[in-house]
Measured scan of single mutants.
Amino acid sequence: EPLWIRPDAPSRCTWQLGRPASESPHHHTAPAKSPKILPDILKKIGDTPMVRINKIGKKFGLKCELLAKCEFFNAGGSVKDRISLRMIEDAERDGTLKPGDTIIEPTSGNTGIGLALAAAVRGYRCIIVMPEKMSSEKVDVLRALGAEIVRTPTNARFDSPESHVGVAWRLKNEIPNSHILDQYRNASNPLAHYDTTADEILQQCDGKLDMLVASVGTGGTITGIARKLKEKCPGCRIIGVDPEGSILAEPEELNQTEQTTYEVEGIGYDFIPTVLDRTVVDKWFKSNDEEAFTFARMLIAQEGLLCGGSAGSTVAVAVKAAQELQEGQRCVVILPDSVRNYMTKFLSDRWMLQKGFLKEEDLTEKKPWWWHLRVQELGLSAPLTVLPTITCGHTIEILREKGFDQAPVVDEAGVILGMVTLGNMLSSLLAGKVQPSDQVGKVIYKQFKQIRLTDTLGRLSHILEMDHFALVVHEQIQYHSTGKSSQRQMVFGVVTAIDLLNFVAAQERDQK
């Protein structure tokens, strides 16, 4: 057995438009009618409502009807409940999964919650491996369901041993009777949507819809739904939504950006999952974080739909894509998950301010006199920076000697690579993860907040409520011999709460 199987392995699926269902090699399930009293909570997966979006479509000038398939009504709160249950049931049916076995899954959280929910009911041990950027709410729900959680670096490539995929496979090879159901490759993922989600949409719309818009992560949702719609409703256009920084969209030119990270969760990847059939997507749109969270908040405030950030991405694209539809036509959007997962993220004004998705003037509360002053007023001194090749031991000596707790790590040209902190280095040394002679590049981390000289002290204040420091950066445009230009970030300084307090105190003292 291989040590790991690539999540982007070539698909062996034989589905073709027009091929009889009787030739399918898979076990198919028909939607079942729910009894009045459910035998367990797993029976509350599927049969989610279709809700008309009344205000947002009109606000953006849509002539067509805009409908939302509300997947956050599933038992675990997301569309991923469907595939989690289906993968477990299919693994039980073919004898792969037996009582007492362990389920391991690399996930952005929602599939993990679905699997942990099913594992709690069915009696399996469950280990979820997820990147650090995923919300604390997801972690809390997983723990409450009895799952064990392993976190991995957000910026690790999918084929790196440190990625959530790599760590999951390492655990599988170490733990007896453990299984990775593997949402990236498992046919049960798109089949769950082909058999149930798509049929529900067709039934709820009486077979009449002209466009379907869905955000894409593993691709199982859009693949399964689109294949069924292509068979039953061939005139329906399928629109895929991919965040900026991901590479799922086609044509490839759409993916060209210097951005590699994004805040919206559960969609987009740096590889093409095996289950994603991009041939059934008629057109791709890219979405960005700001519009995703703005539209998610709009869905909550104006439509009462308590959905997550990827739902915002989907609707932001839908109001663009559906401009081509006329009166009497219908566009369906998939709202994948609930706001429950993001209470401390985009639902929080403070978080939105820190990330730059909300401006101070958007909030009406009274601010102190210094709130709208610029960061450049602080008069920061030149920063202490270190090269990635310097040793951890030497870096600790320098920081202690100069009285700093942290320093930016830059390359020879001064471009920011990340940050090192005294606390992080000492804990890594004590844990045996690094040696004093190791290069400081081994303990770089990139989960820090950046701020510009033109940003306000109010925004800085919000950042420092949650973080010990902020890195002050400025952009530099560099022209190359080819005539092309590129933008790079340079370090201007490091600012802490002490710097802000000293500035405010000094100004008030001078005024007296």
Results as ranks from 00 to 15, higher is better:
441 G>T: 02
459 R>K: 14
468 H>I: 14
472 V>K: 03
409 V>Y: 08
483 G>M: 15
270 D>V: 03
278 R>G: 07
363 L>K: 10
434 V>M: 15
291 E>C: 12
324 E>H: 12
368 P>Y: 12
454 T>K: 12
302 Q>L: 08
509 R>W: 10
453 L>P: 12
414 G>D: 10
364 T>C: 09
389 T>Q: 13
329 Q>H: 08
359 K>V: 12
482 T>Y: 13
239 I>M: 09
330 R>D: 08
429 L>V: 13
300 I>F: 08
445 Y>I: 15
483 G>S: 15
347 L>C: 03
358 L>W: 05
352 M>W: 01
346 F>P: 03
265 E>P: 00
274 T>D: 01
347 L>T: 02
337 D>H: 01
460 L>V: 15
427 S>Y: 14
478 Q>S: 15
471 L>W: 12
497 A>T: 14
433 K>R: 12
330 R>F: 07
270 D>F: 02
401 E>S: 10
427 S>P: 08
381 S>F: 11
437 S>K: 12
436 P>K: 14
316 A>I: 11
329 Q>R: 12
293 F>T: 01
385 T>C: 10
446 K>F: 15
256 Q>K: 12
434 V>H: 10
394 H>P: 14
320 K>D: 03
335 L>M: 11
282 D>H: 02
466 M>L: 14
342 Y>R: 01
436 P>D: 11
396 I>Y: 11
321 A>P: 11
390 I>N: 14
494 V>A: 09
323 Q>F: 15
371 W>D: 09
305 L>R: 01
392 C>W: 15
381 S>A: 12
411 D>R: 14
449 K>C: 12
348 S>T: 12
381 S>T: 15
493 G>C: 14
455 D>H: 14
325 L>F: 11
494 V>P: 04
507 Q>C: 14
392 C>M: 10
391 T>L: 08
369 W>T: 03
394 H>V: 10
400 R>W: 11
264 V>R: 00
345 K>L: 01
439 Q>L: 11
398 I>K: 11
335 L>F: 08
467 D>V: 08
269 Y>F: 01
351 W>M: 05
446 K>P: 10
243 P>L: 02
352 M>I: 11
378 L>Y: 06
397 E>R: 12
481 S>E: 13
379 G>H: 10
403 G>R: 15
372 H>D: 13
440 V>L: 14
258 E>T: 11
349 D>C: 07
430 L>I: 15
253 E>Q: 15
258 E>M: 10
471 L>Y: 09
425 M>R: 09
315 V>Y: 08
267 I>M: 05
430 L>C: 12
473 V>Y: 14
373 L>Y: 15
419 M>F: 15
487 Q>T: 14
466 M>W: 13
403 G>Y: 08
433 K>H: 10
342 Y>E: 00
275 V>Y: 02
238 I>T: 08
331 C>R: 02
286 K>V: 01
439 Q>C: 12
432 G>H: 12
410 V>W: 07
430 L>W: 09
243 P>T: 05
241 V>W: 01
395 T>D: 08
320 K>C: 08
259 Q>F: 13
261 T>N: 11
413 A>G: 14
481 S>L: 11
427 S>I: 11
314 T>L: 01
347 L>S: 00
302 Q>H: 12
294 T>S: 11
503 F>D: 03
437 S>P: 05
264 V>F: 02
427 S>Q: 03
415 V>W: 14
433 K>G: 09
317 V>G: 10
463 I>C: 13
390 I>V: 10
330 R>C: 15
335 L>I: 02
336 P>C: 08
413 A>R: 13
247 I>K: 10
343 M>C: 05
344 T>S: 03
471 L>D: 02
445 Y>P: 08
427 S>F: 10
242 D>G: 00
485 S>C: 15
443 V>L: 09
480 H>V: 09
283 K>R: 04
414 G>T: 13
454 T>W: 12
284 W>S: 00
289 D>N: 02
484 K>A: 03
507 Q>M: 15
254 L>R: 10
446 K>A: 03
480 H>P: 13
260 T>H: 09
374 R>F: 12
270 D>P: 06
430 L>P: 12
345 K>P: 00
404 F>G: 01
393 G>H: 10
487 Q>D: 14
281 V>L: 12
433 K>T: 10
506 A>K: 09
345 K>T: 06
447 Q>C: 14
275 V>L: 11
238 I>V: 13
353 L>V: 15
433 K>F: 15
395 T>R: 05
463 I>A: 03
478 Q>V: 06
291 E>G: 05
370 W>M: 05
327 E>P: 10
488 R>E: 12
431 A>M: 09
362 D>I: 02
387 L>V: 08
403 G>C: 15
447 Q>P: 13
312 G>V: 00
416 I>A: 10
474 H>Y: 15
431 A>H: 03
362 D>F: 14
393 G>V: 14
240 G>E: 05
339 V>H: 06
364 T>Y: 15
263 E>T: 05
322 A>G: 08
286 K>C: 00
400 R>P: 11
472 V>F: 15
297 R>W: 00
268 G>S: 02
360 E>I: 13
468 H>W: 05
412 E>D: 14
334 I>Y: 00
320 K>N: 14
415 V>T: 15
312 G>H: 03
322 A>M: 01
443 V>I: 14
259 Q>M: 11
421 T>A: 14
476 Q>H: 13
401 E>T: 11
319 V>S: 08
282 D>V: 13
443 V>A: 12
458 G>S: 15
341 N>S: 05
328 G>E: 09
363 L>Y: 03
241 V>C: 05
328 G>D: 14
394 H>F: 13
330 R>V: 13
274 T>E: 02
267 I>V: 13
451 I>V: 13
505 A>F: 15
394 H>D: 10
371 W>C: 08
344 T>D: 06
288 N>R: 12
471 L>T: 08
429 L>W: 08
367 K>L: 15
289 D>Q: 00
384 L>G: 10
429 L>K: 08
279 T>P: 15
412 E>Y: 10
251 P>Q: 05
417 L>H: 15
428 S>Y: 13
509 R>N: 12
416 I>V: 15
288 N>V: 08
321 A>R: 08
462 H>K: 13
454 T>H: 13
264 V>P: 02
270 D>I: 01
244 E>L: 02
460 L>K: 05
366 K>E: 13
276 L>D: 01
483 G>L: 10
291 E>L: 12
386 V>C: 14
494 V>H: 02
293 F>S: 02
245 G>S: 07
463 I>S: 08
275 V>P: 03
511 Q>Y: 11
258 E>F: 15
329 Q>S: 02
272 I>F: 13
393 G>K: 12
254 L>I: 03
353 L>M: 15
349 D>H: 08
451 I>K: 08
498 I>W: 08
275 V>G: 02
477 I>V: 12
494 V>S: 06
263 E>V: 05
500 L>V: 13
387 L>C: 09
292 A>V: 09
428 S>P: 15
376 Q>S: 11
439 Q>W: 13
464 L>C: 08
271 F>A: 02
421 T>R: 12
452 R>E: 10
410 V>N: 12
392 C>E: 09
366 K>A: 15
436 P>Y: 11
441 G>F: 14
292 A>R: 03
403 G>I: 07
466 M>V: 15
410 V>L: 14
356 G>S: 11
468 H>G: 04
448 F>N: 10
400 R>S: 06
307 C>Q: 06
369 W>Q: 05
378 L>I: 02
316 A>T: 05
